[in-house]
């Protein structure tokens, strides 16, 4: 028996909106720790890891570890039917091949349930070792989304270079070139507006903008994004989900031909 009640149901709606275009089908894993997912895009280039800790749910019952295969497009369609203020409860009986999403309006005057068929998904689970990152960049998530969107109208790839002066995002394409430099800025009124660079070592890496743009669909989940960079290993683009966990995207840097 599985029953997870999430008062802030909009979080789950935002999670699905942020990954449904990157990943088609995925197994959601439910254990005492929480509700999690790890999945690759269909071309096995990018990886997404989600954790919603059990403590973040108002009610969390998971009698045994369970893995539920879902088509994320279909799940997103169902969650779109929940209001932004609705409480969302996920329910599944042992051995059932369906999951039920229950949506309750905040005033309890409307209750809806949507039942979705589960799928058998043969997915690999990858081990992600702890890594030491050369540079960790924390910036407003909307700013990062803006830069990725702007640069993708000029070029296909972005070079992210971190030095003690700041972080530079550069691209080039047929029509020209573009550079955006963000300096460390911690003297802001609100901490979520700060740009912080934790930089033991300078680093410069090239990434496909198509994927970074896809990751920025998680922007509504968090005011800030944390970008961890190290040469020759995948970048981690992390959006913290308040009080509950995170969504992390992994993408390997491109290699010069």
């Amino acid at each position: 028996m599985l029953e997870l009640r999430l008062v802030q149901g909009s979080l789950l709606k935002k999670v699905l909106e942020s990954i449904k275009d990157l990943v088609n089908d995925a197994n959601f894993d439910c254990s005492a720790t929480g509700f999690s997912l790890q999945a690759m895009d269909s071309s096995h280039v990018a990886l997404v890891a989600l954790l919603l800790r059990s403590e973040g749910f108002e009610h969390y019952r998971c009698d045994r570890n369970i893995s539920m295969g879902m088509n994320l497009g279909n799940m997103a369609k169902m969650l779109k039917c929940a209001g932004n203020d609705d409480i969302i409860t996920l329910k599944a009986d042992d051995g059932s091949d369906t999951v039920t999403f229950m949506f309750e309006s905040p005033t309890q005057d409307k209750i809806a349930d949507f039942e979705m068929r589960l799928m058998d998904i043969d997915s690999e689970h990858l081990g992600i070792p702890e890594a030491e990152y050369h540079a960790i960049l924390i910036m407003p998530s909307a700013e990062f989304a803006r830069i990725c969107k702007d640069l993708s109208s000029i070029g296909d790839t972005v070079v992210i270079s971190v030095t003690k002066e700041g972080v530079k995002f550069s691209t080039r394409g047929d029509i020209g070139t573009a550079n955006v430099v963000c300096r460390q800025n911690t003297t802001v009124d609100k901490p979520e507006e700060a740009t912080v660079i934790e930089m033991p070592e300078p680093v410069s890496l090239t990434f496909a903008l198509r994927y970074l743009n896809s990751f920025t669909k998680a922007t509504p989940l968090s005011n800030t994004v944390t970008i961890s960079l190290s040469s020759e290993i995948p970048v981690v683009v992390e959006y913290k989900i308040a009080e509950m966990g995170y969504i992390r995207f992994y993408l390997a840097p491109k290699i010069e031909e």
Partner: peptide, 14 residues
Amino acid sequence: RGVQPSITNFYRSS
């Protein structure tokens, strides 16, 4: 520009 490696080149099945 450049070659895009798969994420599976970096992380192994666990």
